[in-house]
């Protein structure tokens, strides 16, 4: 571990936490454009956060300490997740501590805490949201893990760094198994980040909401942290997608000269990914909640199939 690597890690930590709302704003702006609206601008999430932080927090009478602690746990977990994904360079000192399985574990940890917090007040919507979130999660988590495993078998490693290095820097090879994994991953990304067709982040339509139902009781700084954590989660998922399926352009360990280029590449990729996400959301329709297990089951099976293909074709 060198000083430069530590600096790089700190730089990435700061970078992700700052640009996460920007990505969210960009996706929302793209959605607005695609829907013929002018939109609130890419900086709107920052304004929302600032507004929320300045408000007085209102807490339900029977909120327990768990409820108040959850936003912080959630934020820290998502921050860690986003900070771990190699986005600009493959030289992150924290990365060996947390491999892909542990990364999935961190997402699960966050999910369990937010679901528990949702059940804490004991309202009808809270428990409903928690149940639905766990329903989506118990299928999304294995699907995500299977996507990672497909990549792991190719690179003979579960370390995210090694996976990215193998995919980005070794000889160019086409992996059909990754095609399956990519489709499954996009489905998981949509479900896990409460996007259409699984959930709609921009409505409080009672009967269909999942994520919003869970955080109904949060306000002010707590809500701000939860929202920021969601933005970080979206960023983490997007960068994981980029790292697995479009890793080119990332700087090698110790190669400082490539950093500016890698940074530019990252921004181009994030812009494109955000726009595609908005497009995907615009052209699909929200699903009935009972179709969601089917959707997630399909994602899971596709990911398993990707792994099988890897075993069968050897490519």
């Amino acid at each position: 571990m060198t000083i430069s690597a530590v600096l790089l890690q700190l730089f990435q930590d700061t970078l992700v936490v700052l640009i996460a709302p920007l990505l969210l704003g960009w996706v929302n702006q793209c959605r607005a454009w695609l829907q013929n609206r002018s939109g609130a601008g890419v900086l709107q999430p920052y304004r929302n956060l600032a507004k929320l932080f300045h408000k007085d927090a209102a807490l339900a009478n029977n909120a327990s300490p768990l409820f108040r602690a959850t936003p912080y746990i959630l934020f820290a977990a998502m921050w860690l997740a986003a900070a771990l994904v190699p986005v600009i360079a493959t030289d992150l000192p924290l990365s060996p501590a947390v491999d892909v399985i542990a990364l999935v574990g961190i997402f699960a940890l966050a999910r369990v805490f937010i679901s528990l917090a949702a059940m804490d007040i004991g309202t009808s919507f809270g428990t409903l949201g928690a149940r639905r979130e766990m329903l989506v999660g118990f299928l999304a988590e294995p699907a995500l893990l299977m996507v990672f495993f497909t990549a792991s078998i190719i690179s003979q490693s579960t370390s995210l760094i090694t996976i990215v290095e193998t995919l980005a820097h070794k000889q160019f090879v086409l992996y059909p198994s990754l095609a399956f994994a990519a489709v499954a991953f996009v489905m998981v990304l949509l479900a896990e980040n409460a996007r259409i067709p699984v959930d709609n982040p921009s409505t409080h339509l009672e009967l269909t909401m999942i994520h919003e139902a869970m955080i109904l009781e949060y306000s002010a700084r707590h809500l701000a942290l939860v929202e920021w954590a969601s933005a970080l989660k979206l960023l983490a998922y997007t960068t994981i997608g980029i790292a697995l399926f479009l890793p080119w352009g990332i700087a090698e360990a110790g190669d400082w000269g490539a950093l500016p280029l890698a940074l530019v590449a990252l921004f181009v990729k994030l812009t494109a990914a955000g726009a595609s996400l908005a497009l995907l959301e615009t052209i699909s329709a929200k699903m009935r909640i009972f179709r969601v297990p089917e959707f997630m089951g399909t994602a899971f099976l596709l990911a398993v199939l990707g792994m099988l293909i890897r075993f069968l074709l050897g490519s």
Partner: peptide, 23 residues
């Protein structure tokens, strides 16, 4: 080698579409 990979990729796509049709 590249051709082989491409054909493998298309084969996988074919299977993917078969599964998509199934679902």
């Amino acid at each position: 080698n590249l051709f082989g990979q491409l054909i493998n990729l298309f084969a996988a796509l074919l299977l993917l579409i078969a599964f998509a049709m199934l679902s």
